[in-house]
């Protein structure tokens, strides 16, 4: 659960993610207003839309999403790539947008676009279990199960491997015969669970 103290300022949060609040709050639905938000909305090409609300006021808000763990990410000008279903809440000062990630759609059948968060401030990610942050350097590329991938920052190249080895590991019936290989310099956020695929619900 995430507690956010507001003193007249505002946060942007996933619709329906607020479980309680104290004090005076107003809620405003964001529907394709700014460029970034439209990005988040249009991203969901299949079915449901990722909708965002702005909460403003004085008091304390409590956010939660399906008993998931909440992880705070501090951004200092860099860009965070995150699956929108894992983005719970951001400082309203952060810009959200959409980025084309190409290949992943072909592996997941879902989500050709990923959400980006940029600027200076904090973003809250939800994950099944506390997220792990893994550093990638040119010497140490990282392989990640697509279902465990949450987000990443930095200059990373990602590509998909369907190696024979990995296929043996996850089995033919699993339907996820890919791993994501990250190369370059950056951080990858991984959740200790592989059940939820990138697209959200399986």
């Amino acid at each position: 659960m995430l507690a956010v103290d507001l003193t007249g300022d505002s946060v942007k949060a996933k619709n329906g993610a607020m479980v309680a609040y104290e004090g005076e709050m107003t809620f405003k639905k964001k529907t394709g207003g700014g460029e970034g938000l439209r990005g988040m909305v249009t991203r969901r090409l299949t079915g449901e839309q990722m909708a965002v609300m702005e909460v403003k006021g004085h008091g304390t808000c409590y956010f939660a999403d399906r008993a998931s763990e909440v992880n705070l990410v501090s951004l200092h000008g860099e860009k965070l790539y995150v699956e929108s279903s894992n983005l719970l809440c951001t400082d309203s000062a952060l810009r959200t947008g959409t980025s084309f990630t190409g290949l992943r759609g072909s592996s997941q059948g879902n989500g050709l676009f990923t959400t980006t968060v940029e600027g200076t401030g904090q973003a809250a990610l939800v994950s099944a279990g506390t997220a792990i942050v893994l550093r990638v350097t040119p010497q140490t590329p990282l392989q990640v199960d697509p279902g465990a991938y949450l987000a990443h920052t930095g200059g990373l190249k990602q590509h998909f491997q369907a190696g024979v080895n990995f296929r043996a590991l996850i089995g033919e019936s699993g339907g996820e015969s890919f791993q994501i290989r990250f190369e370059g310099d950056g951080l990858v956020y991984v959740q200790p669970s592989e059940r939820n695929t990138i697209g959200g619900e399986v």
Partner: peptide, 29 residues
């Protein structure tokens, strides 16, 4: 953390399929 465990592989381990979320290094399965 309580939900994730890191194995320092130097040789062999038995793994149940689908229980590994990430790895570094040269590993064959």
């Amino acid at each position: 953390n309580p939900y994730a465990f890191s194995v320092d592989l130097n040789g062999q381990w038995f793994l149940q399929k689908g229980k590994m979320v990430a790895y570094y290094g040269q590993i064959d399965f």
